[in-house]
Amino acid sequence: MMPGFVLFLISSLTLATVYALVALALNFEAGVDGLWDLGVVSFFAAGAYAYAILTVGPPDQMQVYRLGFGLPLWIGVIGAAGAGTLVAYLIGRASLHLKHVYYLITTFAFAEVIREVLTNERWLTNGTAGMYRMAQPFKSSFETNLYPLVLLLVMVAILVVVFIALNRVTKRPFGRALNALRENEDLAATAGMAPYRYHLRSAMIAGAVAGIAGACYVWFNTVIVPQQFTSSITFVAWTVIVVGGLGNNRGAVLGAFLLILTEDVLRLFDLSSTVAVRVASARVAVIGLILMAVLRWRPRGVLPEKRPRFSRSEALVPAEAPAQGLQQVGSGE
């Protein structure tokens, strides 16, 4: 039997892995590409529910959902990635011709509509009562005591694979094209990059990754209810990548672990439930302060995006034109 502290640490780290995956997804579309997406939770929720519906068994007497295929777990994960991609495609198809603030508001609105649908369509999701007894990977092969550690390792493995894959895509011509579109869409378009098609693809990649993160979230919780998919997930993911360093994958992962661990440290103390609620709120206030402070004094984040350096162009560009990360995304138009 593992001591309480270790169990607690494992659970925190597992949650941080989920957030790191969502942050990586968001970082790809918002940091590498320049989409202001306030609805990344849509992909996350789609992935989680796709996984749940594909793998869960038939309902018991208390439940009202009609679907529950009881399929193997790996099909569930593929389904989760597929559902995330599909939702990203549909939302992107509809709203990618909008710019900046308009895009931001539309994606935000889509996320809320999706959550309302998940809450109300009980035949699909069992509503707010949720679905439970979710399948977890390799559950039967290990002892119950040891299982949290196994789950953490599985998720870290997924995180590593996703991280390497995204890093490679970022460095390939596709990723550089997204960078170019982010910096100056008109110029990139004249160089032959079709903005809409590239944006759609980057959103779909983000959708796939966030969908997988959704499946991981289900493993972590073993239950799924619509209340888990509020827009606060989106805001947390944005906080993570802004603090970690927009455009930098390592920053996204680091940010996720920092944020979840700062959040969870305070849970270690034994507090009565009324005090605990207040402490939880105060913690959010502290995170707000950190976010404001980072944006003010380190607007490019803790680990700023590395800009590629080309010796010839360096000579051409005057030295006093610094790359400004976030700032340039915003004011560069």
């Binding site: 900046h100 944005w238 105060a282 206030a285 995170i287 707000g288 302060l289």
Partner: peptide, 20 residues
């Protein structure tokens, strides 16, 4: 510093007010 920095600063401020 541009609208995106201001936007996320306002998210930070939201967390702050909400938390307090």
């Amino acid at each position: 510093k541009g609208p995106l920095i201001l936007l996320f600063t306002s998210v930070g401020l939201s967390y702050f007010i909400w938390g307090i």
